[in-house]
């Protein structure tokens, strides 16, 4: 069996009375590009900090690449973590950053780092504090990749970037993935980016896991059923109602098919796109539906 990049059971993190992450079970396969989405305060940064070993769980277990995060130097070398706002040392030059990287990381790939900085057209003598947001993000990405980790973890890597810099960052990240055969976990508010680059999805809200899995499969399992108000079709077992929405004349159900095949009742029902699917779960977690404020009909 392949080692999973992330394996958690009942993972929980509390700060005093505040629960930042509650009872999370995750299984993510090697090679996955994972998008972590959810509103602010959902527990995204907590989960990423736990995965990179910056903090320890209050209870439950977490394994990254088969071992406890930051268990020893060898494990640290296998994971690259880039914190929010892609921090770099403002007073140091790009060349300084690469020198530092070489000294601090046993598996440092000098050629990769130098080539990438050249390909980006960056002047090695330039101070990091004078780079644009996009260039800073590219520098942080280059350093993380030159470490030659097996897993890269990013907390909101593109949040502060303009659309052009964002696309350039994702292009470079995907090139690294194609070249180096690495897995990635990244958090983002931009669902269009997540849909573009991620093949796995984790939705967190209110400190709890809402849904996780392979993006294509998740989208394929969610349908929208629209009918005259009150006249709801009888749903066979294996179909969870995620949200119900009534207007004066229509009733709309968002359902998740948990079985392997699509039952006849869902065959003609359209799928939700990724954004609508994620929003349905976020609305449910927040206790509201899309338009009306009817209570949820189904709670898992």
């Amino acid at each position: 069996m392949n080692t999973q990049i992330l394996h958690t059971r009942a993972l929980t993190k509390r700060y005093g009375h505040h629960t930042a992450l509650d009872d999370v079970d995750l299984d993510l396969p090697t090679g996955a590009i994972v998008g972590l989405v959810g509103p602010n305060g959902a527990g995204k940064s907590t989960l990423l900090a736990l995965a990179s070993g910056l903090i320890r769980p209050t209870s439950g277990t977490i394994d990254v690449l088969g071992t406890r995060p930051a268990a020893d130097a060898a494990q640290l070398a296998r994971v690259g973590f880039v914190a929010q706002d892609t921090p770099v040392y403002a007073g140091l030059t790009i060349a300084d950053h690469l020198r530092l990287g070489r000294h601090l990381n046993p598996r440092w790939d000098t050629a990769l780092a130098d080539n990438r900085i050249r390909a980006l057209g960056l002047d090695p003598d330039k101070k990091a504090g004078r780079l644009s947001g996009g260039q800073r993000a590219q520098l942080a990405l280059t350093i993380a990749a030159a470490k030659r980790p097996e897993l890269l973890i990013f907390d909101e890597p593109v949040a502060a970037l303009d659309p052009l810099a964002r696309r350039a960052f994702l292009q470079n990240l995907m090139e690294f993935v194609a070249d180096l055969d690495i897995s990635v976990i990244l958090s983002s508010h931009l669902l269009s980016d997540v849909e573009r680059v991620c093949d796995h999805l984790i939705v967190l809200a209110e400190a709890r896991l809402q849904i996780a899995g392979e993006t294509d499969r998740l989208v394929a399992a969610h349908h929208r059923l629209v009918g005259p108000r009150g006249d709801l079709p009888d749903l066979p077992p294996g179909i969870d109602v995620i949200a119900t929405d009534h207007t004066e004349r229509q009733t709309t159900l968002i359902v998740r098919n948990t079985g392997p095949d699509t039952p006849p009742a869902l065959r003609d029902a359209p799928h939700l796109d990724l954004e609508d699917m994620v929003l349905t779960y976020l609305h449910r977690a927040a206790g509201t539906t899309d338009q009306t404020k009817t209570p949820m009909e189904a709670n898992r």
Partner: peptide, 18 residues
């Protein structure tokens, strides 16, 4: 090639392979 597609439209290489 997968790398060409990836570099052009910033998409997951696994998606191209799929």
């Amino acid at each position: 090639t997968v790398k060409q597609v990836v570099a052009k439209i910033a998409i997951n290489p696994n998606t191209v392979l799929k």
